Simulated scan of single mutants.
Amino acid sequence: MKKLLHVAIFAVVLFLGIKQALEMGDSREWPTTQGQITSSRIIQVSERVSPKGDHSSYTPKYEVRLSYSYQVDGQPYSGKRLRIRSHAYSNEKHARRELANYPVGQQVEVHYNPEEPESSVLMLH
């Protein structure tokens, strides 16, 4: 039973990885529209350093989290993805440097999926 669970978890992770890779490739062809940052902040997350599960072996990481609004064909949408694949910084200073590019009210170029306009991203890499 444990082996079956591991195979199932591996299959899900593989599927999500392939889906993400395909979306990264497709997004290079997505059209763009103007949007506006509605919120931006840094959150601290933890990443396990040791595979042994020792709770003292977590190190802080920092992620830029933001929200933005945009319109496609007059229809309003909102998004939260900066990149297709999330990114965490080990240094808060680097996260703050990226955050400085996205102050609330900032106009941004939004890449959106023409087949699903609610799916969007700000950065393609």
Rank of each mutant, 00 (worst) to 15 (best):
M1Y: 12
M1L: 15
K2M: 14
K3Y: 12
L4D: 14
L5C: 12
L5Q: 15
V7K: 14
V7Y: 11
F10I: 08
A11Y: 05
A11D: 07
V12T: 08
V12D: 00
V13M: 11
V13A: 14
V13H: 02
L16H: 01
L16K: 01
G17F: 07
G17L: 12
K19H: 03
A21G: 04
A21M: 00
E23G: 01
G25R: 12
D26T: 05
S27Q: 08
S27E: 04
S27T: 03
R28G: 03
R28F: 01
E29H: 11
E29S: 15
E29C: 04
P31S: 09
P31N: 11
T32M: 03
T32L: 03
T33S: 11
T33Q: 09
G35A: 11
I37N: 06
I37V: 14
T38R: 05
T38N: 06
T38D: 03
S39V: 03
S39Q: 00
R41Y: 12
I43Q: 12
Q44Y: 00
Q44K: 13
E47P: 02
R48C: 07
R48E: 10
V49C: 01
S50D: 15
P51S: 11
P51Q: 08
K52R: 09
D54R: 08
S56T: 12
S56M: 07
S56V: 05
T59C: 04
P60L: 15
K61Y: 15
K61P: 06
Y62E: 13
E63L: 14
S67M: 10
Y68H: 11
Y68G: 06
S69F: 03
Y70S: 13
V72T: 10
V72P: 04
P76V: 06
P76M: 06
Y77Q: 05
Y77R: 03
G79S: 04
G79R: 06
L82N: 01
L82Q: 04
I84R: 00
S86Q: 07
A88N: 08
N91F: 05
N91T: 03
N91G: 00
N91S: 08
N91I: 15
E92H: 10
K93Y: 09
A95R: 10
A95P: 01
R96W: 02
R96V: 02
L99T: 09
A100T: 05
A100V: 02
A100Y: 07
A100Q: 10
N101C: 05
V104Q: 05
V104N: 05
G105C: 06
E109F: 03
E109Q: 15
H111Q: 06
Y112F: 15
N113F: 02
P114W: 00
P114D: 10
E115L: 13
E116K: 13
E118K: 09
S119P: 03
S119R: 13
S119K: 12
S120I: 02
V121M: 07
V121S: 09
L122V: 08
M123Y: 10
M123W: 05
L124W: 02
